[in-house]
């Protein structure tokens, strides 16, 4: 499929490489540490586990207009998109290059920071740490959060979440720490995966096989109501790309207002929300939707994206 055909494809069905290619302008994507480099995991062979030439993540750079956009796109089909040493290093490498590009842009265009400001986009599809090389994966997560803080005040990081595995485990907080989050209703975002919650709380509290429960708890619509997702879009590659382009077209100082965490004021707002969690003690996400003014909570999961956006009431931001 070429770039133009990809635009009308389902984002959910796309491989990581196609997502990477299609999110940036046509014909501009250059993969870095791609399959030809054969940067496979040094740890999986010993365990008798299959390796992949890209270690489950596509990394590279493209353009959106004049702006270099550094891309990370995770492949859920390979060990659930989980992060090991190489996968993590590739992610960190992208951050390093983007930060370097920012310094370069400041040097070359001191008067036009907006137009040439680099960006990072992460197409998440992962359960977090790869257990086969868990310790290295854990340390890589810490490194990526450290680099995320380095981007603050310099360049935007946008999360796009609409792939099958969703975005869980340690990558759940990496996504939370970005500047803006784009999701489709099919996107999933959280920290603890459904199976672990079931194991911890019992099947009566959380049935991990109940797909609509998982969608209500971690899906794009719920996260949109909670303001944990900033842009909700259809499950179409062009819809994600349009959302990304629109975010990057915003002045940086406006875009960063989409953040949920990353300052004292934002943390205080989240503490207020946590007090509400304790007071409401919801049995289901629907209880929270109702609290935020969605009287017809039962109808929301069935609505198309456009209809949903027209009627959904969201939590009001304080900051």
């Amino acid at each position: 499929m070429d770039w133009k055909e990809l635009q009308s494809a389902s984002f959910l069905e796309c491989t990581a490489r196609r997502r990477a290619l299609a999110l940036v302008d046509e014909g501009t994507f250059t993969e870095l540490a791609g399959p030809r480099d054969r940067m496979t995991s040094p740890h999986l062979p010993e365990l008798g586990e299959a390796v992949s030439f890209d270690d489950g993540v596509v990394t590279g750079v493209g353009l959106v207009g004049e702006r270099p956009v550094f891309v990370i796109s995770q492949e859920g089909r390979f060990i659930g998109g989980a992060v090991g040493e190489v996968h993590g290093a590739k992610m960190a490498g992208v951050f390093k290059l983007a930060l370097r590009a920012y310094d370069e842009a400041c040097r070359r265009h001191p008067d036009e920071p907006e137009r040439y400001r680099p960006a990072i986009v992460i197409s998440f599809e992962t359960g977090g740490v790869r257990l086969h090389e868990a310790n290295a994966g854990l340390l890589a997560h810490a490194e990526i959060m450290d680099l995320m803080q380095d981007t603050k005040g310099k360049l935007p990081v946008v999360a796009v979440i609409g792939s099958k595995v969703g975005c869980f485990g340690g990558m759940g907080f990496v996504a939370a720490a970005t500047d803006a989050v784009v999701m489709s209703p099919q996107g999933r975002l959280g920290l603890t995966g459904p199976e672990v919650i079931e194991q911890e709380m019992g099947k009566d509290e959380f049935d991990a096989s109940d797909k609509s429960l998982i969608s209500r708890t971690t899906g794009g619509k719920h996260k949109y109501i909670m303001q944990d997702c900033n842009v909700l879009c259809d499950d179409r590659v062009s819809a994600f790309r349009d959302a990304l382009c629109a975010l990057l077209a915003m002045p940086y100082e406006e875009l960063v207002k989409y953040r949920r965490i990353g300052s004292y004021a934002l943390v205080k707002e989240q503490m207020g929300l946590t007090a509400l969690a304790a007071a409401l003690n919801p049995f289901d996400a629907k209880d929270v939707w109702q609290y935020f003014g969605n009287g017809e909570a039962d109808a929301l999961p069935e609505l198309g994206t456009e209809e949903f956006l027209a009627v959904a009431r969201r939590r009001e931001r304080e900051v």
Partner: peptide
């Protein structure tokens, strides 16, 4: 479950 509804990922990220 309540943690996931309200976004535990934000808390640890924050």
């Amino acid at each position: 479950k309540v943690e996931e509804i309200f976004g535990m990922n934000k808390a640890t990220g924050a």
